[in-house]
Design a protein around this nucleic acid. Sequence first.
DNA 1: GACCAACTGTAACCCAGGTGACGTTCCGCC
DNA 2: GGCGGAACGTCACCTGGGTTACAGTTGGTC
Lengths: 223, 223
Amino acid sequence: MNPPDEDQRRSLMAIPWFAGQAPEQAAALIKAGRLIRRGAGEWLHGEGDEETGLLAVLEGRLKLYCQAPGEREVMIAIMPPGAVMGQSATFGGGPRLLTVIAAADSIVFTLSDRALRQAAADHPGVWRDLAGLLYLQLSTILQLVAVLTALPPRARLAARLLQLEQNLGVADVSQGDLAEMVGVTRKAINGWLGEMARKGWVRLGYGRVEILKPAALRGVVAG
Amino acid sequence: MNPPDEDQRRSLMAIPWFAGQAPEQAAALIKAGRLIRRGAGEWLHGEGDEETGLLAVLEGRLKLYCQAPGEREVMIAIMPPGAVMGQSATFGGGPRLLTVIAAADSIVFTLSDRALRQAAADHPGVWRDLAGLLYLQLSTILQLVAVLTALPPRARLAARLLQLEQNLGVADVSQGDLAEMVGVTRKAINGWLGEMARKGWVRLGYGRVEILKPAALRGVVAG
DNA sequence: GACCAACTGTAACCCAGGTGACGTTCCGCC
DNA sequence: GGCGGAACGTCACCTGGGTTACAGTTGGTC
């Protein structure tokens, strides 16, 4: 719950979304925000924080859960360091839409909507960049929707793996989490990953999947 | 391609998103926009228009298609009159993300990002309302993602029907379109709708589904 | 070093839904 | 009033993945 120190400011400035802004504006935003720490498995907010605003992962990893009808919660994404998210937990008066849980010990930069508005008073460009961020998120999720409706399960798995590795070569996910995200059972995931491993496309680890042949996965996605 | 006339301005002002804004601001936005007409089946843009901005349906009905990997296009939503959408067809340099096609003869209000920025110069509140709109869309699509990953196919169908009827009691969709949105074959849709019809939950028509017992559908969604 | 929790591998059975193809009914247009 | 295209209803076969339950591993913790 502290303002970022010098080191952390530098890390934040390196995040693409901030890096793309006018330097003074980014600095102002960073100054207005707060850092919070969460241990693995901890719930992100809930202490009366404003629940609408921005979220940026500095260290660790956040799991995003979304409320589905019938008491279910689905994990829809995992945010790695550097990811930025515009969030509005309560909008339109409905129940909480998004639940954010730390998957590992994490340091997260948060910026409430109020702080955002204040910063925007001095730097009107904030609004444009916020809109840009939201547009970007919209396209990401839209893409997700397309994948979910159009692709058969195995292709969905491949798409998810590619999305999770993000050129890192490794996706840090358990097969159980993958199953939840893809919307199938862990058994199915396990079987398909086994196939892929036999073909030499991936190497399986404990809570991780190493992608050896991304091109092959892309082939599966394309059908 | 004309500015809205008096009547149409009134219709636009009645759309919730505009209605929620400061009247002068909404008026300025409406004045800055353009109306376009499209016949059923026509492609919405493509004549070199700016492709980022706002879209509001005045009359008719728009189908939203999203590009999925492997040359596939999935219909993800149908916009009824009154729906507003922030769109950014090309963002991040990728290929076209969203394709908009008129499902019936339609009149659509469009507002380019440039016009939006100009209007925002006089009425800074525009940005806040735009962000609000985008947040709202984000939650809608997020909800869609949750439904798609967590729910079994029949529940997805029920959820879609409820979403499409919007308290009108009738969903104007063909079974083929439903199939595409739910991500199953038309045959499956046909069977399930048949079941529901036998139970008296819905009445089937040509290119339409009349919802008689929304509560029963909600039950299916909840599982 | 021992323990516990989380994660991974696997089995037999079953049913939902996909495939591909066909005839029929409905709507709008000429 | 007839025609063409779109939407609906149905068939037989078959694969894929769900279900449930258990055993073997890994890694972190005390």
